[in-house]
C-alpha cells in the first residue's frame, strides 16, 4: 500500500533554535495520528510544515495526490499547493476565527470552499451548505447568520463543516478541542470520530490533551524539544510508555 503522506527528515529552525528536527513517518489511508508534547516541543511547527504553511529547512513531505501520484509538496509550486489545501487537504485551526471568514454568513463560509473548487449553481451550493450544517449539528435556520453570532463550540463545528464539505482525504487539526468547555469537547469529539469513520479520512491531530488522542487517534507520536521521542499504537504508548519523557507526561495527568 502507498502511504497517503510520507514525511522524511523534516527539519525547521528558528535562527539558532530548533523548531522540529529530522522527523520522519508514513501515514496510511484511513489512519488517524496524534502528536503530543508540551508547549514548545515543536508539534505545531511540524504540523505547519506538513500542511504547507511553513517551509521546512530540510526534508520532504510527499503526498499521494489524486491525479499525479506521490508528489513532494515542499517543492511544489505555490498554486499547486494552494489547490491541494482546498481539495484533498483540510486544516482545522484551534481558534475557529482563524479558519472562518467572520464577516460572511455560515452558509457562505461552507459554500465558499465549494465555489473554490468550481461549484457555481447557487441552489446546489446552498443545499449542500445546509446539509453540512445539519451534519455538524447546527440548526439549518442559522444558515444566513454570521459566525460572530455563534458560540465557540458552534464556530468550531462550522469550521469543521467548511473544511470537510469538499471531501478532503487528509485533515490537519491543531488543538481542535482547545479552549472549549468539556461538555462541548465531548460532543465535538463524538462528531469528529463519526466523520472520520464514515468518510474514511486520514487525520493528523496536534494536541496536548492525552484523553483526546486516546479517543481519536490510532497511533501517537510524542515530541520533546523538536525531536520525536516515541511513536506507536496510541494505547500502547499511553499504557506502556517506553521513554522517560512519555512516562513523565502520562503520569502527570490528573485523575478525575
Amino acid at each position: 500500500m502507498t502511504p497517503l503522506l510520507s514525511v522524511q527528515g523534516v527539519t525547521k529552525r528558528y535562527g539558532a533554535n530548533i523548531g522540529c528536527a529530522d522527523v520522519s513517518f508514513d501515514l496510511y489511508p484511513g489512519e488517524v495520528m496524534g502528536i503530543v508534547g508540551e508547549s514548545g516541543s515543536g508539534k505545531s511547527t511540524l504540523l505547519n510544515c506538513m500542511a504547507g504553511h511553513l517551509r521546512p529547512d530540510a526534508g520532504s513531505v510527499v503526498f499521494d495526490t489524486h491525479g499525479h501520484g506521490p508528489r513532494d509538496t515542499v517543492i511544489m509550486s505555490e498554486p499547486e499547493r494552494r489547490m491541494l489545501s482546498r481539495t484533498d487537504w483540510a486544516f482545522v485551526h484551534q481558534h475557529a476565527r482563524d479558519g472562518l471568514r467572520m464577516g460572511v454568513s455560515a452558509g457562505g463560509n461552507v459554500g465558499e470552499r465549494l465555489m473554490a473548487v468550481g461549484a457555481r449553481h447557487y441552489g446546489d451550493i446552498r443545499d449542500k451548505a445546509v446539509d453540512w450544517l445539519e451534519r455538524v449539528e447546527i440548526d439549518a435556520g442559522r444558515v444566513d447568520d454570521r459566525p460572530t453570532t455563534f458560540s465557540g463550540g458552534m464556530q468550531q463545528r462550522l469550521q469543521i463543516a467548511r473544511n470537510l464539505v469538499t471531501g478532503p482525504r487528509l485533515v490537519f487539526m491543531d488543538e481542535p478541542t482547545g479552549g472549549l468547555d468539556v461538555s462541548v469537547q465531548a460532543r465535538l469529539l463524538d462528531l469528529l470520530r463519526g466523520l472520520v469513520r464514515d468518510m474514511g479520512l486520514s487525520a493528523i491531530i496536534v494536541t496536548h490533551d492525552l484523553a483526546v488522542v486516546r479517543l481519536l487517534a490510532d497511533r501517537l507520536m510524542v515530541m520533546k524539544d523538536g525531536h520525536v521521542v516515541e511513536n506507536g499504537l496510541t494505547d500502547q504508548v499511553l499504557d506502556d510508555p517506553q521513554h522517560a519523557y512519555t512516562q513523565l507526561l502520562v503520569s502527570s495527568v490528573l485523575q478525575v
Partner: peptide, 9 residues
C-alpha cells in the same frame, strides 16, 4: 493478556 492484545510491548 495486555501483551497479547498489543497494549503492552
Amino acid at each position: 493478556m495486555r501483551m497479547i492484545y498489543g497494549n503492552y510491548r
